[in-house]
Design a protein around this nucleic acid. Structure first.
Lengths: 146, 146
DNA sequence: ATTTGTTATAACCTTAGTTGTTACAACGTA
DNA sequence: TACGTTGTAACAACTAAGGTTATAACAAAT
């Protein structure tokens, strides 16, 4: 299966806040319109992004604001904050290998560290990419469209 | 979400065939007992592993046999053969970003190649791991247990 | 103090995907 | 032909994701 769209929605949300926070009141409604989803979905993401200390969200009056430079938030940080995979494991292991069979009783020993190497390689690459990189690509694209 | 257990079951299946093919008739029932699942699940995996030309499966008389050395089958090969992710994309992108919003209309441009870099890093690591590596770890573990 | 617009959160619904199960036809060997 | 097996389809149970509605808590403006 795929990694939840919560990741791409969270990135979209943060880029939205960065792009508009100087000029607009960036509410869950505003973001939801840009992302194309329900405001409650966005509010739940905002709660997680706030818990990770990436943003401030104002109750009552409304609106979200960045607490960190985009440079200092990596794709991994977002992925971790909105927790896209259960129990930190990218791979779902079959749950009842036979303890009677020599293969069955050692399959975890044989596989676990290899799978974790794969997951680490993925997460390492995520750490190398910052939201500032994406904002940069975005600005370029917007320039060209003018 | 997590990557389907079809991957770990397929690896288990291949290691089972490698371990037992000289001494037993390795049927879907036999493998299912070791993996701890239903024989039909295994038969479906066998069909895909056969299509990838990793094994032969005998109709009628029954039993599976390897067609390649474990050395020459990587984790990526298996992952690809049993196709654990839909449409070759590890990440699920939210589907209705607004074309009216400057962020919404460029979000794909900003993100797509970054996500694909991450996926490539993961798959690259998978290519570096062969079933022979796992069989090796397994043999070691079995020795210690004696 | 009340109104207004917002966030926070819980409950629920729908849909889709995975895994497992049953059933049966096709097959090959004895 | 009989037997054990594979191939496949149909379906059921379970789980998870995403969306929706409703409501309470909140903060500022009036």
């Amino acid at each position: 299966m795929q990694i939840s769209s919560r990741l791409t929605m969270a990135v979209h949300t943060l880029l939205c806040i960065a792009y508009f926070e100087k000029t607009e009141k960036v509410t869950s409604n505003f973001i939801a319109a840009s992302v194309g989803t329900n405001p409650v979905i966005i509010r739940n993401l905002l709660t997680q992004l706030k818990a990770a200390d990436f943003i401030d969200v104002k109750r009552g009056t409304g609106g979200a604001a960045l607490k960190r430079d985009l440079q200092d938030i990596s794709l991994y940080d977002v992925y971790h904050a909105v927790d896209c995979i259960p129990s930190d494991s990218l791979f779902h292991f079959h749950e009842h290998p036979s303890p009677q069979c020599p293969v069955g009783k050692t399959i975890h020993l044989s596989l676990d560290d290899k799978l974790s190497q794969v997951q680490m390689a993925m997460e390492e690459q995520m750490r190398r990419i910052s939201l500032a990189d994406m904002a940069g690509t975005m600005e370029q694209a917007l320039c060209k469209q003018r």
